[in-house]
């Protein structure tokens, strides 16, 4: 039994970890980082890219700490002769300073992550659905362009209360504008996911779910439903557009004209709708 093993295992592991981290972290930040989703279609989307990059960069040293140690242990402490007598290792049952340092490091990491996430969330709401009374209202939210997203089985339609409550079958938004989405559903739970904008907000029946987004430049938006909503859930997708302010103005004027026949049938604009039948129709 080789109890007098003076090989500096711990130092070796630390060195290996340092090397692996030093190589991988910059790669993650500078090579993968810019390619992380959901891109820079909006200020919020770009913010999510930042978050994803920070999380990924932080997870490199953590993952490396475990993987390098594990790999080293498998390499260095492996019993190579399984046919010989079964020999035991040293009876180490713990190490209070290692345990303490582990606790300190992981706790600080966790607290940092929670703090970081909260600060990032409180900056601009990060594009997530915030319910009827948002916790985070970005600057100038009182003058935001309001867009109501109406989800139903199985399509999205949009209402623009600032433009006479016109309803359109597709989404267009002006660039460089703060948009206030009011996501609601006419039937079951859906989720409005505008990928390039970094917006995801569940559409709940009878609930006004508000999400803010600052559009930046003209782009196409892939819109999906992200909550299982029935047989055509997989087909509940659309393409929307962010266009220049001038294009938006002419588009919405056109839409008001095109959808005038339907507009006179619409119910007055409201934050939530309870169309009949409400429950189990008899």
């Amino acid at each position: 039994m080789n109890t007098a093993d003076h090989t500096p295992h711990f130092r070796r592991v630390a060195l290996l970890w340092l090397i692996a981290t030093a190589i991988l972290t910059p790669i993650v930040i500078f090579v993968f980082g810019p390619g992380l989703p959901p891109g820079n279609g909006s200020a919020q989307a770009a913010g999510q890219v930042t978050d994803n990059t920070v999380l990924l960069a932080l997870s490199v040293p953590v993952a490396m700490a475990v993987l390098v140690t594990l790999g080293y242990e498998i390499w260095a402490f492996r019993e190579r002769d399984l046919t010989g007598p079964v020999l035991d290792g040293p009876a180490i049952t713990g190490n209070s300073s290692v345990q303490m340092w582990w606790l300190i490091i992981t706790t600080s990491l966790v607290l940092f992550l929670a703090g970081f996430g909260s600060v990032r969330l409180l900056e601009d709401g990060s594009g997530g659905g915030q319910g009827p009374s948002p916790l985070v209202n970005p600057a100038g939210y009182k003058h935001a362009l309001q867009v109501q997203v109406l989800a139903q089985q199985w399509n999205f339609t949009y209402r623009y209360p600032g433009y006479g409550g016109v309803e359109t079958p597709m989404l267009e938004l002006p660039a460089n504008t703060l948009v206030e989405f009011h996501v609601t559903s006419l039937d079951v739970v859906h989720s409005f996911w505008a990928y390039q904008l970094g917006v995801k907000a569940d559409a709940n029946p009878g609930v006004d779910n508000i999400a803010y987004v600052n559009t930046t430049h003209p782009t196409l938006i892939n819109i999906h439903c992200a909550e299982l909503c029935g047989v055509w859930h997989g087909y509940m997708f659309q393409t929307g557009k962010v266009v220049s302010k001038a294009d938006f103005a002419s588009w919405i004027q056109g839409a008001q004209k095109t959808y005038a026949p339907a507009a006179k049938n619409l119910t007055p604009y409201s934050k939530t709708y309870f169309p009949s039948p409400l429950g189990r129709g008899a």
Binding site: Q48, G117, S126
Partner: peptide, 24 residues
């Protein structure tokens, strides 16, 4: 090995700004 990656990816889901992308 697997649970390590399961755990680390869980952090993305727990961080609200990241979760907006990854949820669902």
């Amino acid at each position: 090995f697997n649970f390590l990656f399961g755990g680390i990816s869980g952090v993305f889901n727990s961080d609200v700004p990241s979760d907006v992308t990854t949820h669902g």
